[in-house]
Design a protein around this nucleic acid. Structure first.
Length: 585
RNA sequence: GCGCCCGUAGCUCAACUGGAUAGAGCACCGGCCUUCUAAGCCGGGGGUCGGGGGUUCGAGUCCCUCCGGGCGCACCA
C-alpha cells in the first residue's frame, strides 16, 4: 500500500481531467489541473477550476467549457458523478466505497498515516529558540519553541529529513556580563562587599549560580573587594554610558584577577544555564539533536576562515579601523562591520560562519526561526550566504511575532537584566504543557499574540485543546466499553457507513495528508491545529447523534472502525503539535 | 524618514500559495443527560473583511495610496 493513498487518488483524478482536456482544448493542454478540497461538503470531495482557467485563455464561456470537460471525463471506479457549480467549478463526488477506503488506510498505516513523501528525503535543518543563555526562557521564547518543534515534526511527517538545532550564544560581552554578575553574587556570599552593577543580570538564578559555585569550588574565586574595585571608573545613577564603561572595566578586572579561572567560572555558569534551559524545554516536550556553540566557531578558527574567504573574493574592506562586509552588493541597505576597531569580531561575523557551516553540513534547506524583532537582520545574513556562493533562497526565516503578556488587563513588562518577567516555566506550571503548546500554535506565527494569563489560568478548561483531547478520550471510552479486538476492525465490512455525518467524517480523514502537505509547504503548523479542531467537532457531532454500540453487529463494527480511525488521526495530529492524547479526562 | 509584520463578528482568531453563501471559539439568548464521558451536542442573533482606487470571469487574499497598531533601522547580541 502506498504511504499516501489520498495523493494517489488525487493524481488519478487529475489524470482524468488531463485526458478530457486533450479533447476539449487540444491547444491548451498545458493548463495546470489543480484539484482542491472544497470548504463545503456540499461541493463534493474535490473541485477543479480548470474550466475557468481555460475560459480566460480561450475566451469562451466557463460553464460551457466545464460541461464539455465533464462529457469527456473518462469513467473512473472512484467517481460517482461530476457536476458544474458556481461560475464553472467542476465538483467531483466520490462513490461511498471510495470514501470508505480512507478508514482502511488509516487503520493499516496507524501512526504512519499522514506521513507523506513531498519532502523527498531532503535534508532540512530547523534552528529555533536559540535564546541567550544569560537568563531563563520567557513566554516569547516559548512561542518560538512550540512553533519550531511542531514545524520540525510537520516537516518530518511530510518526508523531510529534519535536524533540530539550538544555537548557543555563549560568546561575547553578554556572556562576560553574566560571568561577572555571578562572580559578584559569589563574592557577596564570601562576605566581600562589592556593589552589584545596575546593568548586571539581576535575576535570582544568578544568585543560584553563585551558590552552586561556592558549594563546588569553595573560595577559589574569592578576591578582596578592594582589589576588585580599585580605580574602577565611577558611574552615576542614570548615566548609561558611564555604567557601560564601568562594566567593561569590571569585566577586565575580573579577567585580570581571576586569570584562567575566569574562563573556568564562565564555563561553569554557562553549563548550568544551558542545562536549565534544556530541562525546561524537555519538560515542554521540545528536544534538539544538536546544541551548537557560538564559542566553538571562534575556537575552531571558523570565523577567521570564513572572513578570509570573503576577503579573498573581495567582499571585505577596511574603513575607520574596522573591517566591513560589502553586503550592499547583495541587496542589503548598508554595509556591515564584521570586525570592530578594537579587533573583536561582531556577532554578525560568527553568524556568517555559522550559516556557512550549516550549508557545509549538507542541508538542502535551512530554517531559522527568529523573533520578529530580528527581521532587519535577514538581509545581511542572506547577503553573506550569497557572497559565499550559496543560493540564499535555501534559507527560510519564519518570523515569530512578539508575545505580549496580559495580567489583570495590563501588559506585563519584561526585562531580562532587571529579572522581572514571567518565565516559560511559570507558564507551563500555571497553564499546563498541553494547553500552553496549543495556545501558542493556534494562530499563525506572524500574528501578534496577546497571552492573557488570567484567561489561560482561570478558564483553562475552556481551552480548545481539551475539546480535541476530549474527542480522543471519548473514543477510548467507547472502545473500552465495547471490549473487542481492535485488530478485527481493520478488515471489517464498511458498507453500513452511509449516513451524512459518516461521509463527512471520512472526507475529513482523507484530507489529513493534505493538511500536512499545506502545513509543511507554508511552514504553518497551525494548519494542523485547526484541522484537528474541525475533525474533533465533526466527531463530537457524530457522537451525539449516533450510538455506536448498537445490537446490529455489522453496523457496530463499521462505526467502531470509523471512530477508531478518527482517534488515530487525532493522535497523529496531536503528536505533531506536542500535545498528549489522553484516554481519559 | 526608511524597512518588515499586522488590521476580518463585542473579544481571541481561521479562511488550503486569487475561487463558490467569509467560518470557528469565547461572550449573549433558547433547547438536549434513565442510553458509549454534558470538558459535549442542536438552534438563534451578531460582518462597510481599517478607508479609497486598480488588476481579474472572480479579491479578505495581488498592486497603488491613505489611516491605525507592533517591531526594527549599532563598530549590542
Amino acid at each position: 500500500m502506498s504511504p499516501n493513498p489520498a495523493t494517489d487518488l488525487k493524481s488519478h483524478l487529475a489524470g482524468l481531467f488531463t485526458t478530457a482536456l486533450e479533447v476539449v482544448a487540444p491547444e491548451a493542454t498545458d493548463t495546470p489541473v489543480v484539484l482542491e478540497r472544497p470548504k463545503s461538503a456540499a461541493h463534493g470531495d474535490y473541485a477543479c477550476n480548470v474550466a475557468m482557467q481555460l475560459a480566460r485563455r480561450l475566451k469562451r464561456n466557463p460553464r460551457e467549457l466545464a460541461q464539455r470537460v465533464i462529457e469527456q471525463l473518462p469513467n473512473s471506479p472512484w467517481v460517482e458523478r461530476a457536476e458544474i457549480a458556481g461560475a464553472g467549478f467542476i465538483n467531483l463526488f466520490l462513490r461511498p466505497e471510495a470514501r470508505r477506503e480512507v478508514i482502511r488506510s488509516v487503520l493499516a498505516a496507524g501512526d504512519a498515516f499522514g506521513r507523506i513523501g513531498v519532502g523527498g528525503g531532503r535534508k532540512v535543518q530547523v534552528e529555533f529558540v536559540s535564546a541567550n543563555p544569560t537568563g531563563p526562557l520567557h513566554v516569547g521564547h516559548g512561542r518560538g519553541a512550540a512553533y519550531g518543534a511542531s514545524l520540525a515534526n510537520v516537516l518530518e511527517a511530510a518526508g523531510f529529513q529534519v535536524a533540530r538545532e539550538y544555537y548557543v550564544n555563549d560568546a561575547g560581552r553578554q556572556m562576560d556580563i553574566l560571568s561577572v554578575s555571578a562572580w559578584i553574587r559569589y563574592l557577596e556570599l564570601c562576605g566581600e562587599a562589592v556593589p552589584f552593577p545596575p546593568n548586571g543580570y539581576q535575576g535570582d538564578y544568578v544568585r543560584t549560580r553563585a551558590t552552586e559555585l561556592r558549594a563546588i569550588d569553595g573560595e577559589r574565586f574569592r578576591r578582596d573587594a578592594a582589589a576588585v574595585l580599585e580605580r574602577l571608573p565611577e558611574a552615576a545613577d542614570g548615566d548609561e554610558d558611564a555604567i557601560e564603561i564601568r562594566m567593561d572595566a569590571l569585566i577586565a578586572r575580573a579577567k585580570a584577577l581571576l586569570g584562567e579561572d575566569f574562563d573556568h567560572l564562565t564555563r561553569f555558569v554557562l553549563e548550568r544555564q544551558v542545562e536549565e534551559i534544556r530541562d525546561v524545554l524537555s519538560r515542554f516536550g521540545v528536544h534538539f539533536d544538536l546544541w551548537y556553540s557560538e564559542r566553538s566557531l571562534y575556537e575552531s578558527g571558523r570565523v577567521a576562515q570564513v572572513l578570509e574567504v570573503l576577503d579573498q573574493a573581495g567582499h571585505l574592506y577596511t574603513q575607520d579601523g574596522a573591517r566591513w562586509f560589502r553586503s550592499t552588493a547583495f541587496g542589503d541597505d548598508k554595509d556591515r562591520v564584521v570586525q570592530r576597531e578594537n579587533g573583536l569580531f561582531t556577532y554578525f561575523a560568527s553568524d556568517i560562519a555559522y550559516h556557512h557551516d550549516k550549508f557545509q553540513r549538507g542541508f538542502d534547506q535551512v530554517i531559522d526561526v527568529w523573533g520578529a524583532d530580528h527581521h532587519g537582520y535577514i538581509a545581511r545574513v542572506k547577503a553573506a550566504i550569497t557572497a559565499s556562493g550559496t543560493d540564499a533562497d535555501r534559507l527560510i526565516v519564519p518570523l515569530i511575532q512578539l508575545v505580549a503578556l496580559f495580567q489583570g488587563g495590563e501588559v506585563v513588562k519584561m526585562g531580562k537584566r532587571s529579572g522581572s518577567y514571567v518565565t516559560l516555566e511559570d507558564l507551563m506550571d500555571d497553564v499546563g504543557v498541553d494547553a500552553t503548546r496549543y495556545f501558542y500554535l493556534a494562530r499563525k506565527c506572524d500574528q501578534h499574540l496577546d497571552f492573557d494569563l488570567d484567561l489561560a489560568k482561570s478558564q483553562s478548561n475552556e481551552n480548545p485543546v481539551y475539546y480535541i483531547q476530549y474527542a480522543h478520550a471519548r473514543v477510548s471510552s467507547v472502545l473500552e466499553e465495547w471490549d473487542g479486538d481492535r485488530i478485527d476492525l481493520a478488515t471489517t465490512d464498511l458498507a453500513p457507513l452511509d449516513a451524512p455525518a459518516e461521509l463527512v467524517l471520512m472526507q475529513r480523514l482523507a484530507s489529513y495528508p493534505d493538511a500536512i502537505e499545506i502545513a509543511a509547504r507554508d511552514y504553518a503548523p497551525h494548519i494542523v491545529a485547526f484541522y484537528l479542531k474541525d475533525l474533533a467537532a465533526e466527531f463530537h457531532s457524530y457522537y451525539n447523534g449516533t450510538r455506536f454500540l448498537v445490537d446490529d453487529e455489522a453496523v457496530k463494527r463499521a462505526r467502531l472502525a470509523l471512530v477508531l480511525a478518527v482517534q488515530q488521526v487525532l493522535r497523529n495530529g496531536l503528536a505533531l503539535l506536542g500535545v498528549t492524547a489522553p484516554d481519559r479526562m
